[in-house]
Write a protein that binds this DNA or RNA. Structure first.
Length: 245
DNA sequence: GTGAATGTTAACAG
DNA sequence: CCTGTTAACATTCA
């Protein structure tokens, strides 16, 4: 379900309910539901894979993890993790992490780290990558402190688009390539958003879950590399592995 | 029926 | 204190 672009879609669905009063709050999430009742939602925001329901001096952080889901003005047949009644409307979240955070989102998040945010800073990402020279690019793309919102699908597609082998160490990647992959992390994320809305996302996958390289017509490799050990599809022929400098 | 997957965190071992 | 491993969470699809 959720990489950054999917969370943007959720936020867009929630925004019409901004400035509504919470008439009732319940659910199995271990938060103080009493804090919510009677309060007015100031904004729905997102940061990477987090959805933020903002009140005056605190906000609710929701992470959909791998299997999270939500329904607006509908219910499932299982208990909600978080149910918000907003007068005649309701918002329900299932199978997710819910946390109540004190203060403002700005106290906890740097929005220049969110690849979907208008304030995303490619320069900041590059600086952070340079500080981790020995890490593998397949791990760093999933590092939420650098690329908040990038998930495993985006990782695989970005590596393929930029013709970079997943096992490249940051320090061995030429500067221009590093710039390119940072740029592509954002650009593919917006393509993901567009295709997800069209319901054509999987049709556009060039690497993720693919068996044959669309450029070389030879079999992809499928491995679980690096610290993250997430499923990785790549072409040994056209995705370059740079030798130590 | 089995296993794996768009993810993270807490608990524990060393 | 830091690092690494494992379990837990819990749904859907092939």
């Amino acid at each position: 379900m959720p990489e950054g672009p999917s969370i943007v879609i959720l936020r867009e669905l929630l925004v019409p309910f901004e400035h509504r009063r919470v008439t009732a709050a319940s659910g199995t999430a271990k938060i103080d539901m009493g804090r919510l009742k009677g309060k007015t939602i100031q904004a729905f925001r997102s940061h990477g894979k987090h959805t933020l329901i903002c009140f005056n001096d605190f906000f609710i952080r929701i992470h959909l993890l791998m299997f999270g889901s939500y329904l607006i003005n509908e219910k499932k047949n299982v208990a909600e993790k978080l149910h918000l009644q907003l007068g005649k409307d309701e918002v329900n979240f299932y199978t997710c992490h819910v946390k109540l955070m004190e203060g403002k989102p700005e106290d906890h998040y740097d929005f220049e780290r969110d690849v979907m945010n208008k304030d995303w800073s490619a320069a900041k990402a590059k600086k952070s990558l340079k500080e981790e020279p020995a890490e593998l690019i397949c791990d760093e793309l999933l590092n939420q402190e650098i690329f908040a919102g990038v998930g495993n699908i985006i990782k695989n597609e970005v590596l393929f688009r930029t013709k970079l082998h997943p096992l490249n160490k940051i320090e061995n990647i030429p500067g221009a390539k590093l710039t390119a992959i940072i740029k592509e992390a954002r650009e593919y994320s917006f393509d993901f958003l567009k295709w997800k809305k069209d319901n054509t996302l999987s049709k556009h996958w060039e690497a993720h879950k693919q068996k044959i390289c669309p450029r070389c017509d030879i079999p992809f490799h499928k491995t679980y590399p690096g610290k993250s050990k997430r499923r990785t599809y790549y072409c040994n022929n056209c995705q370059e592995l740079y030798p130590p400098a």
